[in-house]
Design a protein around this nucleic acid. Structure first.
Length: 591
RNA sequence: UGCCCGAUGGUGUAAUGGUAGCACAAACGACUCUGACUCGUUUUGUCUAGGUUCGAGUCCUAGUCGGGCAGCCA
């Protein structure tokens, strides 16, 4: 069964797509190439999904390509575990939609492009990164990046600076105050070349020297005040091992990585607006041939009722507020996937919010709507009772099984059915009976009638309670003439409830998830941990219709009248299924 | 207060000088063997002040408010 549905009809348009369209019209580039460049220092989350769908979306709409690139220039923070999760998450998110635009490169290879020129030369491997391919990575360009640094030095555009990190800071000045030139700013090219090569050779300790761009210490834009290009880090890199002890910084590595890959539109979030002049400066001052890549910025996705700060997500994992990065309550892609949310719903949500430069908070209800809408068409209906109460149909003989036809999905054009068993004893939802019903209660009450979905109308004759006064059993009469195909099948009653045969059912653990935080802006007061929703997870021992015994984790179900559920791929055991509630059905009836 | 970015209903967006529209949310109603879905109705909006124009959400000026930037993080 597929959970994919088509994207909403109108093709998305936004200011970035307009720019791309104009470039396509004027044939500025031979091919549109974008990239998604996460740093592998954590798991991808819903915010990244917006960037992924933007970059891959633009690629797919323009017959272009989108490179998955690890922005791995800081060995201190990055790990292989994160690389692997990022690859898996991206592939899951775009599968069947834009995976034909996803480019990997030949394992171990770097582009053949040089300071002189040349076309990017890499192996495109759509889909699975196998033995022969891997994601792009900034670290695979370290050799070229070093060569380009030599070009900059030779052109008098970069110098080795001996200022300590603290002094570098002092010399930089303040936003409203110009900085001062480093005393090492006017070293000769020969001296710079020598020192930079010795930095690379490992002659100096961390922080002793750095390579800096020679721009303008009085620039109003602080990022132009001789920004650092390389720092010394005697550290092992998850990808390059111990080959390097100098590592390029983001601003230097990113524009050049884009250039090396033939990226045309480098799309990032708003906090990099101030860096754009530096992006351009580096490419221009190395003297690279046009057309050059350009940077465009958009406002990132900020959903309410969520935390997406990487640091805080790590904190929640470490402090065991959640069970891990893939806890179904987490806003991570892996959590979303485990929760049972279809990739198509994520895509629809993040493309639906649009792309602007306006910093806004997106209502989580928009996401919930996309999830329900995708699942409504995709999910197979099943009957399940979360909080069972026994109900005895006193006029049915014990041991008799009568078959009922249940609709698998009423949204289908030609819905199929399956057979479920009605027996003398069934379970119903404890919520669906009230001894003292509130006003407008459509469900079962003493002496009242209700329909058992797909079966017949029943009347409640008797309530059995235990010593504590808890209802333990409901004794009812079934009106078999109201079954499908029987004379009174059209009889109307106000309420229809779900049920499961007691003699013929499957026991399962069901995890009822809700929003992780119970306030819209959990970290508004800096105390997000105090706003964790105590009801974000409730575990119940449920009774399921037996057909669910063969459920697979890639299938989506609606437990009728309850919500959408999926088998937990991680914790389910043979004969001991665990189902996660992806999301409840919309409930417009409040108690 | 240096530089940069932004401002359209409760929320997210569209309108590219010409009827302020869509989705979500909310409310009410219809339908219903899911209090779901679907359908119908309704409520709510161009930050302020000037200017250009036959006409301004859109262009100009000033202001207000919000956000970003001073890592050898990305």
């Amino acid at each position: 069964m597929s959970v994919e549905t088509a994207l909403p009809a109108p093709a998305p348009s936004d200011f970035i797509r307009d720019i791309v369209a104009a470039h396509v019209a004027e044939k500025r580039y031979p091919k549109i190439v974008t990239r998604f460049p996460p740093e592998p220092n954590g798991y991808l989350h819903i915010g990244h999904a917006k960037s992924i769908c933007l970059n891959f979306g633009i690629a797919r709409e323009n017959n272009g390509q989108c490179n998955l690139r690890m922005d791995d220039t800081n060995p201190a923070k990055e790990e292989v575990e994160y690389v692997d999760s990022i690859v898996a998450d991206v592939q899951w998110l775009i599968a069947g939609w834009a995976d034909h635009c996803l480019a990997f490169k030949a394992r171990g290879a770097a582009p053949a492009r040089t300071a002189v020129n040349g076309q990017p030369d890499y192996f495109l491997a759509p889909l699975a990164p196998g033995a022969n391919s891997e994601p792009f990575s900034a670290s695979s360009y370290f050799d070229q990046l070093y060569e380009y640094a030599l070009v900059l030095i030779n052109r008098g555009k970069a110098y080795v600076c001996d200022l300590s990190p603290e002094d570098t800071d002092k010399y930089r000045g303040a936003p409203d105050q110009p900085g001062r030139d480093s005393p090492f700013r006017n070293r000769t090219i020969a001296e710079n070349l020598d020192l930079f090569q010795r930095m690379k050779a490992g002659e100096f300790p961390n922080g002793a020297r750095s390579l800096r761009a020679k721009i303008d210490m009085a620039a109003p834009n602080v990022w132009l005040r001789d920004p650092l290009l390389y720092r010394i880090r005697h550290a092992s890199h998850h990808h390059t091992g111990d080959k390097w002890c100098i590592y390029p910084l983001y601003d230097y590595a990113h524009c050049l990585s884009d250039y090396l890959e033939g990226v045309t539109h480098s799309i990032c979030t708003l906090e990099f607006v101030d860096h754009r002049p530096l992006y351009d400066w580096i490419l221009e001052n190395i003297g690279l041939p046009r057309p050059l890549p350009h940077q465009y910025e958009f406002a990132k996705l900020i959903p309410n009722y969520c935390i997406v700060s990487k640091r805080k997500l790590i904190q929640m994992v470490n402090e065991k507020v959640v069970t891990g990065w893939d806890d179904p309550r987490m806003p991570t892609i892996s959590g979303i996937r485990r929760r049972g949310i279809p990739a198509s719903a994520v895509r629809r949500f993040v493309t639906g919010v649009g792309v602007t430069k306006f910093v806004s908070v997106t209502d989580f209800a928009l996401f919930e709507h996309a999830i329900r809408d995708e699942l409504n068409t995709a999910a197979q209906r099943r009957l399940a009772v979360l909080r069972p109460v026994k109900l005895v149909l006193t006029n049915l003989p014990a041991g008799e099984v009568s078959a009922c036809q249940a609709t698998n999905n009423p949204q289908d054009e030609n819905p199929t059915t399956r057979t479920i068993a009605l027996t003398r004893e069934v379970f119903i939802e404890s919520d669906d009976f009230a001894e003292v019903p509130p006003p407008k209660y459509f469900r079962l009450k003493p002496g009242g009638e209700v329909r058992l979905k797909y079966a017949c109308i029943i009347r409640c004759d008797e309530i059995v309670k235990d010593a504590a006064g808890i209802v333990t059993e409901l004794r009812c009469t079934a009106d078999l003439s109201t079954r499908a195909g029987q004379p009174n099948s059209a009889k109307k009653v106000k309420g229809t409830i779900h049920w499961v045969s007691a003699a013929n059912c499957l026991d399962a653990e069901v995890r009822l998830y809700d929003r992780l935080f119970d306030v819209p802006e959990p970290d508004a007061d800096g105390k997000f941990l105090e706003h964790v929703n105590p009801k974000s997870l409730e575990v119940v021992a449920a009774k399921l219709e037996v057909s669910l015994a063969s459920a697979r984790s890639d299938e989506r179900f609606q437990f009728e009248r309850l919500g959408y559920f999926a088998l937990d791929a991680k914790d389910s055991l043979p004969g001991r299924p665990v189902f996660n509630r992806t999301i409840s059905l919309k409930d417009t009836w409040e108690k």
